[in-house]
Design a protein around this nucleic acid. Sequence first.
DNA 1: GCCGCATTTCAACAAGCGTTGAAAAATAAA
DNA 2: TTTATTTTTCAACGCTTGTTGAAATGCGGC
Lengths: 220, 220
Amino acid sequence: MTKTRQAPKRERILDVAEELFALRGYDGVTLRQIANNAGVDVALASYHFGKKLDLFNAVFERRAAHLNSARLDALEACQASADAAGPSVEQIIEAFLRPLELAQETGDPGWQNYLALIAYINNSPYWGPRMMSKLFDGLVSAFIAALRKALPGARDEDIYWCYHNLSGALTLTLAQTGRIDKLSGGKCLSADFEAAYDHMIPFVAAGFREVCGRSGKKRA
Amino acid sequence: MTKTRQAPKRERILDVAEELFALRGYDGVTLRQIANNAGVDVALASYHFGKKLDLFNAVFERRAAHLNSARLDALEACQASADAAGPSVEQIIEAFLRPLELAQETGDPGWQNYLALIAYINNSPYWGPRMMSKLFDGLVSAFIAALRKALPGARDEDIYWCYHNLSGALTLTLAQTGRIDKLSGGKCLSADFEAAYDHMIPFVAAGFREVCGRSGKKRA
DNA sequence: GCCGCATTTCAACAAGCGTTGAAAAATAAA
DNA sequence: TTTATTTTTCAACGCTTGTTGAAATGCGGC
């Protein structure tokens, strides 16, 4: 077998690129910074990935499939364990958010940088339209469909605006700016994803019900 | 009195810088791009503002005072017209958001770029800690105090997490990525700030009440 | 007219950028 | 071992970057 021995330097380049791109954005990072922090030569990034933009895309593709299937699995699991009416709004939001705690689950701290990078492109008027659809349109459609079923009679327009609010709250959480740490005087911690989701899930579920009509009543 | 003749080229540089920084971020824009789009020489930006970072800061300072006083005025107005119990959560959120529709009010389209730029730094792990506190800490503290009064018995931790969710939803709205336009198939429009706030205000208010307790204290 | 000052352009600098072809080193196959 | 292939480094390229000093332009006061 002459196949991929999976040299560790290639992965180190991806790890460092992930971290630096998440912190400073695509244009705020140079290939030399990435190479230096990874302890390799500049040309090695080009050898493995091609152009700088190709490296950027490679960072996204490395974890995309794993992330999407984890969240889709969570949705299907909560649908399977629900009655004929389908899962509640809380259960759907929970399935949407909880799989994102995979930094703790997998023990790989790179996930945190990856999610911060997702936040960066989702909030960017330049990168958003270029990358978000390709990465997440399928996933979002599945969750929107589940929410539509859990909120009978709701107008599509209202559901999308509510999803937009959810997406924004999530994005700022993933960005890990540490702003809430300072504002709250240390009472809240950006790095505490569990606390963030514990608060976000009931917050968002109540918002959906308020805007999309109370017909979708709260259930245990 | 040879006072400021306020050459229009200086303002044009700020306008273009505002627009391009909002779209591509600080590192994604060159001084030459700004100068070209403004129809001036590269060196003119340095003459008026100094270093590139000084120009970046000048863009923020141009509208900061106006924006903050508009929002603080709205808060004070809703407090003045309330009874002894103070304004409701909805009224406070409304005062927090509605003044941001000043692109329509003032007729200055630059406001939209400015707010997108605010969204950019608020979501950035690099720029956020550097700039958000200086610009908005006073304003946020005033609104937090009003919310604390409107939610008697709520734990500070819960209030800050709810504010974080509000800030995230607002940030993604200001970023103007157009993602909701595509997702909703045109039913929702990123540029329609009024529709965004019409949905965000009840959404967020319901979330605050759910998480921070409906009237008295929250469960253990 | 000329003068003084603010504004704007011109021209160029050193430094850093992404990228590439060829050499060197490491690894696998024989 | 020798050979073939992959991985990594070296060295350099053409180009762009932010910045600056000096020259040119505009303009009100004399």
